[in-house]
């Protein structure tokens, strides 16, 4: 069985016939070509697949593409506007909030969610907000610093 669905990714609409078992993350990467969104686990725990679905952060590996029919997805590629990096991207860069970079797209999308729901988070709130995102490289300190800096920049 295939199902005709329509999902808008970073402002581009994709009408496709998909198998119901296709995960949203595969739709985004394989059909949409937005490979910034990563797959880091099979257990819904690493958060590297985090995207915004209708503005709300979620793990795109734990959602069928058919469930997202009619929705709008924003991935890491959709954050920069007119060549201008998003303050979170700037802050991750400035504060060295990444090493290998594999977790970074998910970290930034989860940080986006955190700042949407709590624009002035404490360090503790930042850590809790990123609880669903695993990083094997950085030890998280610079990620927390980056989110703190982005929050300050965005408050201006």
């Amino acid at each position: 069985m295939t199902v005709r669905i329509s999902i808008t990714v970073n402002g581009r609409r994709f009408d496709r016939d998909v198998e119901p078992r296709q995960l949203l993350v595969h739709f985004i990467r394989d059909l949409g070509g937005f490979t910034g969104t990563k797959i880091g686990c099979d257990t819904s725990q690493c958060g590297s697949c985090t995207v915004l679905l209708d503005g709300v952060a979620m793990k795109s590996c734990t959602c069928l593409a058919v469930q997202a029919d009619g929705s709008e997805v924003i991935t890491i590629e959709g954050l920069a506007k007119e060549g201008q990096l998003h303050p979170l991207q700037e802050a991750f860069w400035n504060k060295h909030g990444l090493q290998c970079g594999f977790c970074t797209p998910g970290m930034i999308m989860a940080s986006h969610e955190l700042l949407r729901t709590n624009p002035k988070p404490t360090d503790d709130a930042i850590r809790h907000g990123l609880a669903g995102n695993l990083c094997r490289c950085t030890g998280y300190q610079n990620i927390v610093r980056a989110v703190r800096e982005a929050a300050t920049a965005m408050a201006k």
Binding site: S44, T50, K59, C63, A110, E113, T117, A131, G132, N133
Partner: peptide, 9 residues
């Protein structure tokens, strides 16, 4: 429950 993304879904 879980983390923010899990709680959203």
């Amino acid at each position: 429950v879980g983390d923010p993304a899990v709680r959203n879904r």
